[in-house]
Design a protein around this nucleic acid. Sequence first.
DNA 1: TCCGGTGTAACAGAAAATGTTACGACAAGG
DNA 2: CCTTGTCGTAACATTTTCTGTTACACCGGA
Lengths: 143, 143
Amino acid sequence: MAANSRLTIAAHALAWLALAQRRGQEILTSEQVAASVNTNPVIIRRSLGDLRRSGLVNVRHGAGAGWSLARAPESITLLEVYDAVEQEPPFGMHRTEPNLECPVGRGIRPALGEIYDRVEQAVRQELAATSIADVLRETLRVR
Amino acid sequence: MAANSRLTIAAHALAWLALAQRRGQEILTSEQVAASVNTNPVIIRRSLGDLRRSGLVNVRHGAGAGWSLARAPESITLLEVYDAVEQEPPFGMHRTEPNLECPVGRGIRPALGEIYDRVEQAVRQELAATSIADVLRETLRVR
DNA sequence: TCCGGTGTAACAGAAAATGTTACGACAAGG
DNA sequence: CCTTGTCGTAACATTTTCTGTTACACCGGA
């Protein structure tokens, strides 16, 4: 399972936006977010761009530009973030088509597909139970 | 999420071993398995080697060598296969350490760690509910 | 002792994720 | 309307992971 960190980066950015908002700073630039995540601003723009396309954040152009939450942090679930930034499912099929002359090779992909679907449903259910506000609360609990 | 196919390959190999066993052929070589999966025999040896280290299959050396199931297919769950072949969890943390001077940077990793743990538990529970015998049955249902 | 197959190292290639630089587009404010 | 700061995105470099391939030592039954 290739460990990608898209969900982590996006959740981090959103939690930081939520905290800044609570502190009275509605808008952050990609550079300010990047400073907390400790990465390049372009990475943040790409991630927040995904979130914008899904309606989770707003962006302002021009001078004094930057990013802000489009909705209350309590109402944004990790499932929405997951759908916004993740493209590949957790488990992949064979890269090359299996041997279709073998009964196992013929039927294995639909069979595993159903099972993987059930697994992903379980993942989605768990992610739906946590909001950005929850993430932020847990984050600030650690001192 | 980087789509890797380790669980798929291992499940395919085990299902094929289970079917061969039912047909009276207890032992298959890595080349025979590779022919069904449609890949290189070394890939299969690596995968089955993982499964052997976890006690799911047996190997025989010397002449007439090959692989066989170590337990009844009904008793081998996909969770055991997952643990045998998968190393990385579904979601990765930041590659580079976040900015520890930011309150979010400081607390985000333990916070997300707990959430990701819950997600993985859900995955494990789902995988534990399916056996290799189930996979084989579903596989043969497709004609 | 032969022989077919495993175990594993070493390397090649491909694909994906991440990081970096560069620059046009855009809008607020003077 | 022009300056300025920031986004949006392309292009490319780098790193990492996965997969495939070749090669060869080793093993054990006949």
